[in-house]
Computed example of a mutant assay.
Amino acid sequence: MKNTFRTLFIAFLFMGCQQEITPADIANINGYWEIEKVVFDSGKDKEYKMNEVYDYFKIDQKNVGIRKKVMPQLDGTFMVNDAYEKVIIRFAEDKVFLDFSTPYMKWSEELIALSAEELVLLNKEKNEYHYKKATPINLLGDGKETK
């Protein structure tokens, strides 16, 4: 019986601590994001120390935009291609969703947390993807300004 109350208390604690995301917060999603870790439904984590690919989001004021995979280069720029996913931000039942689509498929992910430095998405398999805001890499030290 004690374990039941303890479990319920922890569950309510997590539900009460969930960030409320407003339409004004959505502008924070724009830019480059580097994945830090994935928290699987089983409770195990996978840490990412170094990433070859970042996610780039560009969402307009109508909550419509794109997500592209980009590759950071040593001079601080990013290599891109023409592939992208369409994104629509949807507010429903006190939750926020990112609805993705390509010519081949459609899917949604729940936006759990969003700030200028943090992004957390939850997919349908209940895996949490934790991102941090990415900054350009300039290992050349040539003094040139990065884009």
Rank of each mutant, 00 (worst) to 15 (best):
I66D: 01
L8H: 05
G65Q: 02
E47H: 12
F100C: 05
A92L: 13
L98Q: 02
F9Y: 08
F9P: 04
A83R: 11
E145P: 10
T4Q: 12
Y84L: 08
A113S: 10
K68H: 06
K2I: 04
Y84F: 13
S101P: 06
Y131A: 13
I10S: 07
I88C: 14
S42M: 12
G141A: 01
I89N: 01
Q61A: 14
V96Q: 03
A83I: 02
F14C: 10
Y32P: 03
S108Y: 01
A92G: 10
V64Q: 10
E128Y: 11
E110A: 05
P72V: 08
I59H: 10
I59V: 14
V80L: 13
Q73K: 15
E145W: 00
N30P: 06
Q19L: 01
E34W: 00
T146F: 00
T135M: 15
A116S: 04
Q19M: 02
N63F: 14
A24Y: 01
K95T: 09
K95F: 02
V39A: 15
L121C: 11
I112C: 02
K124N: 04
N123L: 09
Q19R: 01
A116D: 00
M1C: 04
Y56M: 13
W33F: 04
E145F: 05
A113K: 03
V53K: 04
T102A: 09
I89R: 06
K144G: 00
L121N: 12
E93Q: 12
V53W: 03
V64I: 07
I21R: 00
K46C: 06
F12I: 09
K69G: 11
N30W: 00
E47G: 03
C17Y: 08
M1P: 03
I89F: 02
T77A: 05
L8N: 11
M15P: 05
H130L: 02
L114R: 01
K2G: 10
V80R: 12
T102M: 10
I29H: 00
A24G: 02
F91I: 07
E34R: 15
R6Y: 03
L13A: 08
N3H: 06
V87F: 03
V38Q: 07
Q73H: 10
V96K: 12
A134Q: 08
V39F: 02
T135H: 14
K68P: 12
V70T: 03
Y131K: 09
D45C: 15
E117K: 15
T4N: 12
K69R: 13
T146C: 05
F78R: 11
F5A: 14
R90H: 08
Y84P: 04
L111G: 13
R67T: 04
V96C: 09
K133A: 14
S101M: 05
I59K: 07
C17K: 08
V96D: 10
D94S: 15
I88G: 13
K44V: 15
R90I: 12
E118I: 05
L122W: 00
G31S: 01
E118P: 06
S101A: 10
A27D: 07
P103K: 13
E34G: 15
A24K: 03
G16W: 00
E109S: 09
N51C: 11
G143V: 07
I89T: 09
D82L: 03
A113N: 02
T77D: 07
L114I: 14
L119I: 13
N138T: 05
